[in-house]
Amino acid sequence: MDSNDCIKDPNDFDWEKAWANEVGSKKREKKWTKDTPKIHFEKIAVKDEYHEKLIPKLILGDEDTVLDLGSGEGAVTSLIAEKVKSVTAIDSSPVMLDMLKQRIEHYNIDNIDIVESDIEDATVDNVGKFDVVVASRSFMGIHEIKDTIINIQKIAKKYVFLVVFGRNNWKLEKKFYEEIGKDYPDFAPYDYLFNLLVSLGIYPNIENFDLVGNRKYDDIEDAFIRMKWKMNNLSEEEVDKIRPFLEENLTLNKEDGKLENLEDKADLVLMWWKIK
């Protein structure tokens, strides 16, 4: 973590307000809906380098209960379930939870419970207490971030693990926005969250995953679909520029026959702390 990312005394600044300003509207737009291209669901369901690096970092016991906030289709949830007594998965998208149900049935998993709810609505009163709380890439769109952190502090008995996006995330998409002269709808900076935690008396361990792998695409159409699904703030004219941009910026990997760009990868940061 760069020392310039935070100030000497986080209490000297309103990090909650700064975070809210970056997130924008209090009403979060649901990322995964029935209109999201099905091909994208199929791509994200695959275990990848991130999952392989995340699970060993989680402190989990055989008898632990885990709350997975923003579980999505369950790639992380199902891996955690292999190591603990039970997992409760919370997500606001019925589509993603349907995929999780299919995953549970396919692999005959019997220790995952599902709750359809916004992360912000999870409190100790309506979900109870859990040994460990995990939020994998699901905190970046939360507006009421301070209240949410306070809630999970009450829910967790042992540990909290948060994975958020760093500042060097998805450079290929950022380059596209730069070329069309438009601000990229980036996530709130992770250092805002770090400083907010410190201002609340929480001193998290912090580590960058330093992922090596980048995204791979079968062809330009595959890349277009997977890039376009979250570009609903673009005009038709701007969307028409996506394919030419991809054709110019993706190259063929001769070893696997996939299209790629080495800068087209995630920058992920793990923050975790022990409950005192």
Rank of each mutant, 00 (worst) to 15 (best):
residue 29 E to F: 05
residue 30 K to S: 13
residue 44 I to V: 12
residue 48 D to F: 08
residue 28 R to S: 11
residue 45 A to D: 08
residue 51 H to M: 04
residue 38 K to R: 01
residue 49 E to A: 05
residue 17 K to M: 11
residue 5 D to T: 14
residue 53 K to S: 05
residue 41 F to E: 03
residue 36 T to N: 01
residue 9 D to R: 11
residue 19 W to I: 10
residue 43 K to M: 07
residue 37 P to I: 04
residue 45 A to I: 04
residue 12 D to H: 09
residue 18 A to W: 09
residue 20 A to D: 10
residue 26 K to D: 12
residue 48 D to Y: 13
residue 29 E to A: 02
residue 14 D to K: 02
residue 51 H to C: 02
residue 56 P to D: 09
residue 41 F to G: 08
residue 37 P to H: 04
residue 46 V to N: 06
residue 11 N to F: 00
residue 16 E to S: 15
residue 29 E to K: 07
residue 35 D to P: 02
residue 17 K to E: 15
residue 40 H to S: 11
residue 25 S to M: 04
residue 26 K to P: 00
residue 42 E to D: 04
residue 26 K to Y: 03
residue 60 L to F: 05
residue 45 A to E: 04
residue 5 D to N: 15
residue 60 L to I: 06
residue 59 I to T: 14
residue 46 V to W: 02
residue 7 I to C: 14
residue 55 I to Q: 03
residue 44 I to T: 12
residue 8 K to H: 13
residue 18 A to Y: 07
residue 57 K to M: 11
residue 25 S to E: 11
residue 62 D to I: 13
residue 20 A to W: 03
residue 59 I to R: 12
residue 6 C to V: 13
residue 18 A to L: 06
residue 35 D to S: 08
residue 26 K to M: 12
residue 57 K to D: 07
residue 56 P to F: 04
residue 38 K to W: 01
residue 44 I to E: 08
residue 47 K to H: 05
residue 36 T to S: 01
residue 36 T to I: 03
residue 10 P to E: 02
residue 35 D to Q: 06
residue 35 D to L: 01
residue 24 G to T: 01
residue 33 T to P: 01
residue 45 A to R: 08
residue 43 K to V: 10
residue 33 T to S: 02
residue 26 K to S: 07
residue 16 E to V: 12
residue 15 W to I: 06
residue 11 N to I: 13
residue 27 K to N: 14
residue 59 I to K: 14
residue 44 I to F: 07
residue 34 K to T: 12
residue 20 A to T: 14
residue 48 D to L: 04
residue 22 E to V: 11
residue 31 K to R: 13
residue 13 F to A: 08
residue 25 S to T: 06
residue 15 W to Y: 15
residue 11 N to P: 00
residue 28 R to H: 05
residue 44 I to K: 05
residue 13 F to P: 08
residue 52 E to G: 07
residue 48 D to E: 14
residue 27 K to M: 09
residue 33 T to V: 04
residue 39 I to D: 03
residue 37 P to N: 02
residue 31 K to E: 00
residue 29 E to S: 10
residue 40 H to I: 13
residue 44 I to C: 07
residue 38 K to P: 00
residue 55 I to T: 06
residue 43 K to S: 13
residue 57 K to E: 10
residue 11 N to K: 15
residue 57 K to I: 11
residue 55 I to L: 10
residue 8 K to M: 13
residue 44 I to L: 06
residue 58 L to N: 05
residue 20 A to E: 15
residue 52 E to F: 00
residue 35 D to I: 04
residue 39 I to K: 09
residue 36 T to P: 02
residue 27 K to C: 01
residue 60 L to N: 07
residue 57 K to H: 10
residue 38 K to C: 01
residue 28 R to A: 10
residue 35 D to R: 02
residue 35 D to K: 06
residue 25 S to Q: 10
residue 32 W to D: 03
residue 51 H to T: 08
residue 46 V to D: 06
residue 44 I to G: 09
residue 20 A to Q: 15
residue 61 G to A: 00
residue 40 H to G: 00
residue 29 E to M: 01
residue 51 H to A: 05
residue 7 I to F: 09
residue 9 D to T: 10
residue 11 N to R: 15
residue 62 D to L: 14
residue 17 K to T: 14
residue 10 P to N: 04
residue 42 E to K: 10
residue 16 E to P: 10
residue 45 A to V: 03
residue 32 W to L: 00
residue 9 D to G: 09
